[in-house]
């Protein structure tokens, strides 16, 4: 496993600080429910960033990482839905709870193949919402153009997710070392895009 470098740590620290800013001061004026959804998302990102700084990339080997990291797209997409498609909040919340529960159960009880399919479906739904909804709202003029940066953030981390997924499936597009070299930068860019995009909310 690649050793974490000083630059990786700096990028992750910047990510942690951006997430902290978003939680502490970046959600003024939003509805309480939306604030809590975003808090879960950026809070998970913050704690995950700190743990990566402390434990290095070996921390990614902890089984719970897969489960906990699901909270980031799920709660971020929930925040977007509760902010912009209020009437769909409860149905989508139910989908998220079911999806998250399915990921937890399949991680421990069924084959890797089924667990991976469930994971891909849940991440896919949440990822598409984070990618498409801000861009759609910006194009329609319902939100300022800068809000589309949230979608860009989703695209960035989607790329990282794809690289990791192919690596795990045994058909790597890039080597593990290259992916881990890129990962802190991708996480930072994603967070920066999310935070700047949400500032237009």
């Amino acid at each position: 496993m690649k050793k974490i470098s000083a630059l990786d740590r700096i990028l992750l620290l910047a990510t942690v600080l951006l997430a902290a800013y978003q939680i502490a001061g970046g959600m003024n004026g939003m509805e309480p429910l939306t604030i809590w959804f975003y808090t879960v998302s950026f809070g998970t990102l913050l704690v995950a960033g700190l743990l990566l700084i402390i434990l290095g990339f070996e921390g990614l080997e902890i089984q719970a990482v897969v489960i906990v990291s699901t909270l980031i797209p799920l709660s971020l997409s929930l925040g977007l839905i509760s902010e912009h498609l209020v009437e769909y909040t409860i149905p989508y919340l139910i989908i998220c709870v079911v999806g998250f529960t399915a990921i937890v159960i399949t991680r421990f009880s069924v084959t890797d193949r089924i667990a991976t399919i469930i994971l891909a479906v849940v991440h896919g739904i949440a990822g598409l919402i984070i990618f498409l909804l801000p861009i759609f709202l910006s194009i329609r003029g319902a939100m300022p153009a800068g809000f589309a940066l949230v979608g860009l953030g989703a695209a960035v981390i989607g790329l990282g997710g794809l690289l990791l997924a192919f690596l795990k499936a045994g058909q790597p597009i890039l080597s593990q070392k290259t992916i881990l070299t890129l990962l802190p930068a991708l996480i930072f860019l994603m967070t920066a895009a999310f935070v700047s995009g949400l500032s237009f909310s």
């Binding site: 939680i23 001061g25 809070g43 913050l46 704690v47």
Partner: peptide
Amino acid sequence: GFLRLMAVLSIG
């Protein structure tokens, strides 16, 4: 905002 941030750190 600060309380939320502290809660996040505490949960970690």
